[in-house]
Nucleic acid binder design. Structure first.
Lengths: 80, 80
DNA sequence: GTGTGACTTGTAGTCCGTA
DNA sequence: CTACGGACTACAAGTCACA
């Protein structure tokens, strides 16, 4: 667990939704967290915590992940 | 100036585009950087550097800005 | 293959200015 | 009103061992 930061309920939901969306597209691509991590040049556990909505990811990393999933970053924010 | 970080050309362009998009919507809303900063609960100088593409903004703040501009965060990533 | 806690380092983000 | 600098503080980035 990370989440020392006190986010509002709305922000927590926002991050959770984002994580779920990433997971959704990842499984569509038939990728494990490990493989996505490798493709995005990020750490396996980092991807995991992002998917769980524990991280306030920056747009550069969001872009990296989107690229590895063959989608646009805006696709990942659609739920918001 | 901040920008010590060595981003790739692609990433720099990504951040610049994002900044320009924010500026575009901000002027559409007839807001100054100061007013947008106040509405988003962010710093005046921070908004400025984001618009100049000097910052790798996090998704929470992207969401805050989008909300203040009455648009969805995905609208801000359209160019990417 | 994934979840989690603990940790260090870099930078996101704040606040004071000047032009 | 905006760009930009210096000097901070808070937190994202990134890694690890172990369940």
């Amino acid at each position: 667990m990370r989440m020392k930061t006190a986010y509002s309920e709305e922000e927590k939901r926002f991050l959770r939704d984002l994580g779920n969306t990433i997971k959704h597209y990842r499984t569509l691509c038939d990728l494990s967290q490990e493989k996505l991590a490798f493709a995005s040049n990020l750490d396996r556990t980092y991807i995991g915590s992002v998917e769980r909505g524990e991280r306030n990811i920056s747009v550069i990393n969001l872009n990296k992940i989107a690229t590895s999933l063959n989608i646009k970053p805006s696709e990942l924010m659609k739920t918001a």
